[in-house]
C-alpha cells in the first residue's frame, strides 16, 4: 500500500516553477450591491507558468527501449487486456496482497523519518528475497542498527489485533537478532492476557529482546542523521531512550474493493 499504489513517486526538477498561482479577485468594496464576477481569471503568463508546474505523470513512457533490448522478444505491447465472464459454485474471499493499514499516530514519526518503518516493511526487509536479502539495515543511511525498538502503533485496539501484532513483533525480533551481531531490541506495547499466558514466558527468554509493558508516546529527533528518541511509559513511569531503527506494529486494513466484494457475496474475509 505504501507508495506506488498512490502514484506518488515524484522527481523534483529545478526548472519547474514552484508556487501555485493565485486567482486574482476584485476587492470586497467593489462587490456590494452588484453581481460583477469576483474572480477575474489568470493572465496569459501566469496561466502558462501554472501549466508548467504539471508533472505530466506517466509511468511507462512507451519508448520501447526494453523491447529493443530484449533478445528473447518477450516484450509485446499489443498483448490486450482480457475480459472474462465466469461462473462459480462457491467463493472464498481473502485479503489479497494489499498490505494496507490503519493510519498511525503521526507522533510516532512514521512518514517523517526514513528510519521509522512499519512491521510490514520490516517483514519484507527480513525476507530472504527482500531488498537487502534479509539483512537488517536502516533505510535512512544503510547502516546496521545497534539498538532498535518495535512499538505498538495501536495500543488501544481489540485483543485480536494486540495479540497478532505482538506475536509478529516477537517473531521479527527473533529473526533480526539471529541475523544481526550485537543487536538489542526492545518491544514496547501493552500486553493482554492471552499473550501473557501463551507466549510471554517464551518471549522473555529470547536473548537480546526486552519486552516493555507500556505505551509508546512519541518519536522525535533533532537532526536528520541523529538517532531517534522514543518516549514511552513503563508502569506509569516516563522513559526516554534512543534507537537507530524503529518498527511500528500496524493494524491491517482490508481494502475497500475486497470489503465491498465480501459484502456483495455475503462471505466474510478469511
Amino acid at each position: 500500500m505504501i507508495y506506488e499504489k498512490n502514484q506518488r513517486y515524484i522527481i523534483p526538477f529545478d526548472d519547474v516553477p514552484s508556487p501555485r498561482a493565485e486567482m486574482p479577485e476584485i476587492s470586497v468594496d467593489e462587490r456590494r450591491g452588484n453581481f460583477v464576477e469576483v474572480e477575474t481569471g489568470f493572465p496569459e503568463d501566469i496561466a502558462v507558468q501554472e501549466a508548467k508546474r504539471c508533472l505530466s505523470c506517466r509511468r511507462c513512457l512507451g519508448c520501447a527501449l526494453c523491447w529493443a533490448e530484449c533478445e528473447s522478444e518477450a516484450i509485446d505491447f499489443s498483448i490486450p487486456d482480457e475480459e472474462l465472464d465466469l461462473e462459480f459454485d462457491d467463493v472464498v474471499v481473502t485479503k489479497g496482497q494489499d498490505n494496507s493499514f490503519f493510519p498511525i499516530d503521526p507522533k510516532l514519526g512514521f512518514g517523517s523519518y526514513a528510519d521509522v518503518i512499519t512491521d510490514i516493511q520490516f517483514e519484507r526487509m527480513l525476507s530472504p528475497t527482500g531488498p537487502t536479502d534479509g539483512m537488517v539495515v536502516s533505510p535512512l543511511d544503510g547502516e546496521i542498527p545497534k539498538r532498535m525498538a518495535i512499538v505498538q502503533g495501536h495500543p488501544n485496539e481489540d485483543d485480536d489485533q494486540l495479540l497478532s501484532s505482538l506475536v509478529l513483533g516477537v517473531n521479527e525480533s527473533i529473526i533480526a537478532l539471529d541475523r544481526t551481531k550485537d543487536l538489542e531490541v526492545i518491544l514496547v506495547s501493552p500486553i493482554n492476557e492471552v499473550f501473557k499466558e501463551q507466549f510471554l514466558s517464551n518471549a522473555e527468554k529470547i536473548s537480546g529482546l526486552r519486552i516493555v509493558k507500556g505505551d509508546p508516546e512519541s518519536v522525535e529527533k533533532d537532526q536528520e542523521d541523529a538517532p531517534l528518541s522514543l518516549k514511552y511509559s513503563e508502569n506509569g513511569r516516563q522513559q526516554d531512550d534512543t534507537f537507530d531503527l524503529i518498527v511500528i506494529l500496524t493494524k491491517p486494513k482490508i481494502s475497500s474493493e475486497i470489503k465491498s466484494l465480501s459484502r456483495k457475496l455475503e462471505k466474510p474475509v478469511q
Binding site: F13, V16, C54, L55, R58, L61, G62, C63, A64, F77
Partner: peptide
C-alpha cells in the same frame, strides 16, 4: 509512442528531466 499517445513538448521535456 507505442500506445499511440502523442506527447506535447511539455510532457516530453518532463520525461527528459
Amino acid at each position: 509512442n507505442v500506445y499511440g499517445e502523442i506527447f506535447t513538448e511539455h510532457e516530453f521535456n518532463r520525461a527528459i528531466e
